[in-house]
């Protein structure tokens, strides 16, 4: 039987591929695409305000409301803006770590650095966010430390600054790993050639390493950008006034207001943003670097 199957698979390549991809494809189509389809359909429905029952149909009410009220534009821009800031911060922080890990460290130190990057991912996301809440609070570790060295305290607990710091911390490993992989792929001979031709370290970095590692950076950006874009827990825990994300509006419309169609309409926005982002990322070769 086993022999027959392998012979069959060898002769009919298509059947073998179908057998291998069948289950994941079914999963993808049945759960993922169907869910997105349901989201789009629901976004045109409405809700009866007193009984809370869904009214199926086709109306643009939700989208009109989203466009008419400037608060939703503001929340959308805030979400995209912070996601962008987090991505740029993580690229800046990831470079020295990745470079040191690949070019400077010996094999043992490299393994140790790699482990240090990965270890936070093993602990609960919530525990880490709550830890930051304590660090940044009025009487938290940060202000205690500042006071100890004679500096005035910072009031960044429960603010957009806090969100920026916490997000940058949370997603940093997802940037370091692809950047490190990209740096590893640059042949050392190119760097030597650059030096031989008289380029400074900085010029080599800017004109040889940076362009060659670009796909890795974009690959990391897919993670940092999309993870920030879709989050709502961090804004809820460390955000202050005026810190709502798209996800918070979706959450409160589903879990609190019970206006699922409106939530579906707003959730279509990050979907569109990510589609554009991924198209650009593919242009820049990010998918070859994953």
């Amino acid at each position: 039987m086993r022999r027959f199957l392998s012979a069959f698979g060898w002769r009919h390549e298509g059947a073998a591929n179908a057998a291998l991809l069948g289950l994941p494809a079914l999963w993808f189509a049945g759960l993922y695409l169907a869910a997105i389809g349901a989201l789009f359909v629901t976004s045109f429905w409405t809700v009866d305000s007193l009984s809370g029952n869904l009214i199926p149909g086709f109306s643009f009410t939700n989208f009109q409301q989203l466009l008419a009220d400037p608060v939703y534009t503001r929340i959308g821009l805030r979400t995209i803006g912070i996601a962008t800031a987090v991505t740029l911060t993580d690229i800046t922080l990831a470079w020295p770590v990745a470079y040191a890990m690949i070019r400077l460290a010996g094999p043992r130190l490299r393994a140790a650095l790699m482990a240090m990057v990965m270890v936070p991912l093993w602990s609960s996301y919530l525990a880490r966010v709550y830890a930051w809440r304590l660090i940044l609070a009025h009487d938290g570790l940060l202000n205690w430390g500042l006071k100890a060295i004679g500096l005035p305290g910072l009031h960044i607990g429960y603010s957009n600054w806090a969100m920026w710091i916490v997000f940058s911390y949370l997603w940093l490993p997802f940037m370091i790993l692809p950047v490190a992989a990209a740096v590893e792929r640059i042949p050392p001979s190119l760097l030597e050639a650059s030096a031989d031709l008289g380029a400074h370290g900085l010029a080599t970095f800017r004109r040889v390493m940076l362009p060659m590692a670009l796909p890795g950076m974009v690959a990391g950006a897919i993670f940092t950008f999309s993870l920030t874009l879709g989050d709502y827990v961090t804004p809820m825990l460390v955000g202050g006034e005026g810190s709502d994300f798209i996800g918070n509006v979706v959450y409160s419309n589903v879990g609190v207001t019970n206006n699922i169609p409106f939530a579906a309409a707003y959730a279509a926005l990050p979907l569109g943003v990510m589609a554009v982002f991924l198209l650009i990322a593919r242009r820049l070769g990010a998918f070859d670097a994953l």
Partner: peptide, 8 residues
């Protein structure tokens, strides 16, 4: 709706 507007 007004509350979402207030919170920003």
């Amino acid at each position: 709706r007004e509350w979402q507007n207030i919170k920003g």
